[in-house]
Design a protein around this nucleic acid. Structure first.
Lengths: 144, 144
DNA sequence: GTAGGGAATGCCATAAGATTGCAAGTGCTT
DNA sequence: AAGCACTTGCAATCTTATGGCATTCCCTAC
């Protein structure tokens, strides 16, 4: 289970194409999730818009990437941890959406159990919290 | 502080128009959040598409409604509790997005403190959890 | 009660974002 | 090396969102 794009593709029975590798590379560049528009801007000259959509959908279905929606309804993508697979995304996941810079971080913290009302099952507890990230906090502190 | 649409509008210095009242009525019909497409379908013949966008934006800015994004990036709206105001949305809020029927519930449970990594401030802890709601659970149980 | 001013609405056009069908190209297997 | 299936890129289409402007409507002052 490596972070090497070629291995990841093989493990999920996906054909090895240069477009797919490029997309994986871009997403893997940072632990911070990257937004669809950003990906499009970076890869738009190498990869067709539609292909990018399709690749991202495939990756999500296969459990290779997480798709996280930000406050504007824009899709953001981040690599899944190795615990994710096709039929079972990593259950305990906290995303942090900075409301200042817009970046989405995947936090490696345990999610406290939220008490559900009777009848509700939190099958996939996938929580997103909003606030200010460390970089933006530093900037705010500096300018104060 | 009433749930009467006319009062709500007055309290937020908004003109009383029939379109605004209708939108508030629709949203207030259910504790479950209603999606933009649903609203449009229900009100499309009375209210212009563009007007609906503008009204919803206004309501969100004024702190009258919450906007919650579902997994598809679609906006869903629900009435804010009385604790919300223009400059300070209710901080502790848990939304529950049913992955089966798509409905979004506003849960009246307290949000457990999530331990943030150093430097991160969870200014507005606005958590959304995904799973199966009581109705869908009942249906699943019945068909099993 | 009514006249006037400012805001809200509706319609138009336009932009941005997402999806589908199909022909051509590419990777994988034998 | 050849064939097949999958993938890609392009064009067309559709949905969703935004901006400008004339008309209408609400609220206030008189």
């Amino acid at each position: 289970m490596k972070l090497d794009p070629v291995n990841i593709l093989k493990e999920h029975d996906l054909k090895h194409t240069k477009q797919r590798v490029r997309v994986l590379e871009e997403i893997a560049l940072d632990t911070v999730a990257i937004s669809q528009p950003e990906l499009e801007k970076k890869l738009g000259k190498e990869i067709d818009r539609v292909t990018l959509y399709r690749i991202l959908n495939t990756y999500e279905e296969k459990g290779i990437v997480h798709r996280i929606m930000d406050l504007n309804g824009t899709a953001n993508y981040a690599l899944c941890s190795s615990a994710c697979s096709e039929d079972h995304h990593h259950d305990e996941h906290v995303h942090f959406n900075c409301t200042t810079c817009g970046k989405i971080y995947c936090l490696e913290v345990t999610v406290p159990k939220i008490k559900m009302p009777a009848g509700f099952t939190a099958k996939t507890v996938n929580t997103t919290t909003y606030g200010t990230c460390e970089k933006c906090n530093a900037l705010i502190a500096a300018s104060a």
